[in-house]
Design a protein around this nucleic acid. Sequence first.
DNA 1: ACCACCGGGACCCCCCGTTATT
DNA 2: AATAACGGGGGGTCCCGGTGGT
Lengths: 198, 198, 198, 198
Amino acid sequence: MQQRSEETHTRILESANLLFSKNGYDATGVAEICQAAGVSKGAFYHHFPTKQAVFMKLMEGWLNGLDAGFQLMLSQTEDIPQALLQMADMVGDVFESADVHLPIFLEFWRQAMRDPAIWQATIEPYRRYQTYFANLIQEGIAEGSLGPVNPTHASRTLVYMAMGMLMHSLFDPDHVNWPDEVRGSIEIILNGMTRREP
Amino acid sequence: MQQRSEETHTRILESANLLFSKNGYDATGVAEICQAAGVSKGAFYHHFPTKQAVFMKLMEGWLNGLDAGFQLMLSQTEDIPQALLQMADMVGDVFESADVHLPIFLEFWRQAMRDPAIWQATIEPYRRYQTYFANLIQEGIAEGSLGPVNPTHASRTLVYMAMGMLMHSLFDPDHVNWPDEVRGSIEIILNGMTRREP
Amino acid sequence: MQQRSEETHTRILESANLLFSKNGYDATGVAEICQAAGVSKGAFYHHFPTKQAVFMKLMEGWLNGLDAGFQLMLSQTEDIPQALLQMADMVGDVFESADVHLPIFLEFWRQAMRDPAIWQATIEPYRRYQTYFANLIQEGIAEGSLGPVNPTHASRTLVYMAMGMLMHSLFDPDHVNWPDEVRGSIEIILNGMTRREP
Amino acid sequence: MQQRSEETHTRILESANLLFSKNGYDATGVAEICQAAGVSKGAFYHHFPTKQAVFMKLMEGWLNGLDAGFQLMLSQTEDIPQALLQMADMVGDVFESADVHLPIFLEFWRQAMRDPAIWQATIEPYRRYQTYFANLIQEGIAEGSLGPVNPTHASRTLVYMAMGMLMHSLFDPDHVNWPDEVRGSIEIILNGMTRREP
DNA sequence: ACCACCGGGACCCCCCGTTATT
DNA sequence: AATAACGGGGGGTCCCGGTGGT
């Protein structure tokens, strides 16, 4: 019985994820989600108090996944520029298989812009990553593998680039080979950060 | 009478722009727009066949404005890296005073992702700019002010960065000094593109 | 100039007639009529105070046409049964070429049921015809060409039959050969009215 | 709860029937129906997907009722002319108490003229009755109680007459004594069909 | 005579969330 | 845990009519 409940819970989340991605948050009705999940509206509102709640749960999972990914990435790092390139490859893979997971990101962003509660939940990891990157770059400078750039600017530039690429991939998913694209851009930025030897 | 008509047209467009920016496309009702514009629904539907049509008109204007801006920018260029930095300053200014004009960009993007007609209208200038940048960089390489980077990757990287920054500014408008931010990032990327002298 | 006005007037009526027939009175919008007539809404409301007014004008014309038809028919009559059969042929012809003129009849009827003003305008000729028929039949009885039927019942029966046939033809216009059908039915009724010779 | 549901269903149908009859299909709003039924719009659209759907359900019931009536009528028949006269009496009764049930018939007809789906649903029983009548008359001819008329024409004539009478009763409900009227007309037609004995 | 423009009131449909019931 | 039924409040759209101007 408990299993049934859990399954229902999951099915709702999955259907919602799919539909929010495909049609956007506002355009997706609760009834639509229920139908896609093969669940009655009563069940829906038994598991979640609100459509918003489903959305937030989804977002929570998304952020956690992101966190986990980063954790994994950062755990096995030696040389800083190497680490960044390694990340690039991982990110590139994400882009490849992302027709479902990425569009909903935009929805998250939109909501985060407007709802302070969501904003708080989003900004926190965001800044954490940024800081982490900055530290990483700081280290790189210290160890001499990176040139004397402003670590804050540099880390932000990396994040901007990643996000811009994400936006583009939403808009034009099949236009480029994303793994190559990520690597290409990272290399340029890295190049801009590495020490010149006159 | 004709003047009144034109004013009505404008007022609708302006109110819609504001409200779409503030609350999003879906969350903005026609009635709301009409009220904000001080116009009746009859007038609204006399000037526009659909809420969508208003949106598209807005987007058209936005794209045209972008075009004009670029045109202006590119008209007065000498040295390539200098030109890019100059652009950076202009873009930075845009970000500063953009609480109204930028959020609607996200709405455009969302619609463009879903509606093929809008997509077409959006992708065209987008690619045009990209190409223009690539050519500019190509020139830079030829004249020796830039290093032997892949012009396509480089130009895309610039655009990604700009878009990512835009996204961030939507999310966290007051967090940084945008003109500085733009310049900082551009410098890093430029640095990554300029010739090294061993 | 006056001619132009008159033409506009006519075009509106014709378009309205067509559209009322095809889609019904309620489902036809003023804008639709105007578009079909190639006329602006201003012109429409210059010539007619109301959509209803157009409808009534149309109905007036229709009733007048009916009147004229009957007048013609009844002017050239000798033997009563013969006259009825002759009418049958004329009515049959009407049915044949009537895809436009007949459906609007149903609209008239509907409005007449509800609007007392229209009702008055409709019932008057209706009763006139009925009376005329009854008189005709009365004559037939007197002259011996018809049997001793109740003239009122008989005339009504004829009218019922005609109207029922009209209704059927609206519903199933291509199902039967209407001239034959009219004649067939009239013959049966006539037969029921003619004197038996034991 | 289940009982409540069924009652709601019924109440909606009944109110719709009443209002469609009184004001016509187009002129009747969903809100109006809901109010008359003491039901919320949510409930309405829970039970029916569309205003049209209510209408069609109503029509279905009407046709079924007609079917049942005929079944009953035809079950207890001996002599053909007698049977027809017997029918006349039943039909006459219907007319008497029909201020609500008859006007909606016109709405059905109108819709059937325009919507192919409704048309199909309507034409089928219609033709069935027609055929049945024709067979009946055929039998009458065989058993010698009717003269050598064309059974198809004869049966159609009967139906035309009935429908025309119905139309008239809609238009002028209080003008005549309907039972008498039906009987009178049927007698004339019957007379037209019965064998003459020269 | 004609027109563009405007006013505002519905109309049908749908939507999110609740309640009574199993 | 899950359901069907329900409550109402807009959603965009359209429509009929009137007004100021040509």
